[in-house]
Design a protein around this nucleic acid. Structure first.
Lengths: 334, 334
DNA sequence: CTGTTAGCGCATTCAG
DNA sequence: CTGAATGCGCTAACAG
């Protein structure tokens, strides 16, 4: 706090010019070993640390990135943030974390402030901003990667999770266990991921030559309570069901409770598969078979892509990364 | 990306000097309404946004803060981060999120890089860094607030959760329900929070005139499995126990399972109280009575304190904020 | 009310 | 191999 040490002070103490110090700092050539060491010694003695602010002003590169998510407290984004931050850190970047609460106005403001901070790039999850507006806001940045959202145009890179494949592998697992009467506890109709997972369910059924029965599908709120209620209804109305594929783990846990309510044993009477693999999945009893979404990888891969765009040798143009979920077999559907 | 608009361009277009533009941007006085509007119009037409980098170089204030935590993916810190970011955002700051993984070397490096970024202040959780080293690293910053850690010296502000009070209120709750034989499933002996919670347990007993029985205390790993195992042993060896106070919710859930194993009904035969109020607490059955740690408030309060130190009218010197946990009564101990 | 003169701390020319 | 000059984009003093 006592007036930071500046390069000029180092130069004076080391009896060299500013340039020489600068060269030493940035590990550039053109400095004799002798003076390099002398300067280095002074730097350490004074505990000098260059100002990325001043440096950024001239180089146009700040070594900072922006990460925009609806809510870090959501375990999904927390894990994404961890992956992203880790990769960025290893590459020497610091990342601004910005929560938006899915408030579109706030998303816009955050993107602006990040712009004023002159970040080198942004990694954004904006589920609700109108496509055109989002693209424009994002285009103002030097580099950008979107995740968890499909865009019409191919101007900005995206990283996605293949929900359809996930729904498919979950359903396949049940089919392979011999189930033919498989119910679907779908999520909110408005949810893109819910629709894709349901689509995967259908595809798997058809591929296995099992006809898709619409009466076996119900929409549920993406909560434990929702799952419990809807599962109870579905199982009561369709006693022939021997398995359930649920939109997410919370719904699946609700289904677990519903089975307990109805006196149907899991997995003996009814097998259950969830989605996400939240921490709770391995704690409920029976433990939950589920489709793990690679959240950490989503973050790290998206960040890697962003860094590639920033430092990349050439403009590689549009790129889309699709991550595959992975089936985690536990007790609820062995 | 096409060479950002600069203040000079705005000045030229608006036929005024740089200073006038600067004044308009910063809402300062000394500009006639007429020119102010003219300049404002040009700013908007050109979509000009000032560079916080350039501004920071001269003002010595970057409008950025650092948040250093072991792991954002840990729900505790995720919630703290949300609280901190929210307060910072409202105050016009952007915050760098830094994960350290409890790696002390990395904590130091992160604090350095934050320093080079010339952040206006840092908010740090460093559970393991040696006190002297931590203080020194933190002292290099213009302002700092530590959280979740007690320091010997009183040079840097801290925000803490009162674990002892929490242990006390949890135990009191059980005492008020008439329990006299209350077991304690303590956490790892090395854990500071575990020791304080246990201390609160003892204090409550003594205050109620109930003698403290050491054989009713066991250490458990802070996991569901740990709690299940240790609870089973404790309840078997001491059938007289009618209640358990557990180090945290995971342990308490394990205890719930142990009771099921032993055929002891909860809360009829055994009442159980946990700690933390993790999301799962309200999902298990019976739902868990627990002591809620105000995580979001921890983050927001710490950030408020930090901003106060940065913008504060005067140096208010050392300050310590202690947050009280709150008892959440559910079914496991009504 | 407005403009001019100086830097902030550093890296990028180009000379020596 | 080294250094002197120049400017990044902006604000803080001062003038007018």
């Amino acid at each position: 706090m006592p007036g930071r040490v500046t390069m000029a002070q180092v130069a004076r103490e080391a009896q060299v010019s500013l340039m020489t110090v600068s060269r030493v700092i940035n590990g550039k050539e053109g400095v004799s070993q002798a003076t390099r060491e002398r300067v280095q010694a002074v730097i350490e003695r004074l505990d000098y640390h260059p100002s990325d602010i001043a440096r950024g002003l001239v180089t146009k590169r700040t070594g900072t990135l922006g990460l925009v998510v609806p809510d870090v407290a959501n375990p999904f984004f927390a894990e994404v943030a961890r992956g992203a931050e880790h990769v960025a850190y290893d590459a020497g970047y610091n990342v601004f974390l910005c929560n938006t609460g899915e408030d579109t106005q706030r998303e816009l403001k955050v993107l602006r402030s990040l712009e004023e901070k002159r970040v080198d790039g942004v990694m954004v999850c904006s589920p609700r901003l109108e496509e055109g507006v989002l693209e424009e806001a994002v285009a103002r940045h030097q580099a950008a990667v979107l995740f968890n959202r499909q865009l019409e145009s191919e101007d900005v890179c995206v990283v996605m999770v293949d929900d359809r494949a996930g729904g498919q592998m979950a359903t396949q697992h049940l089919l392979q266990s011999g189930h033919r009467a498989i119910g679907l506890l779908s999520g909110p109709p408005a949810s893109q991921s819910s629709r894709w997972r349901a689509e995967g369910y259908r595809v798997a059924l058809v591929a296995a030559g099992v006809s898709y029965n619409p009466t076996w599908t119900c929409h549920s709120l993406p909560t434990v309570e929702g799952g419990r209620e809807v599962a109870r209804g579905l199982l009561t109305d369709n006693p022939e069901l021997t398995a359930l594929f649920c939109y997410n783990d919370l719904v699946a846990i609700g289904a677990l409770q519903a089975c307990a309510d109805l006196g149907r044993a899991v997995p003996t009477d009814v097998a259950i598969v969830g989605f996400d693999d939240i921490p709770m999945a391995s704690l409920v009893s029976p433990t939950l078979t589920t489709c793990r979404v690679p959240r950490y990888e989503l973050g790290s891969e998206a960040m890697r892509l962003l860094l590639e765009k920033i430092n990349g040798c050439a403009e590689k143009g549009y790129k889309e990364i699709v991550l595959l979920p992975k089936l985690v077999v536990r007790d609820s559907a062995p």
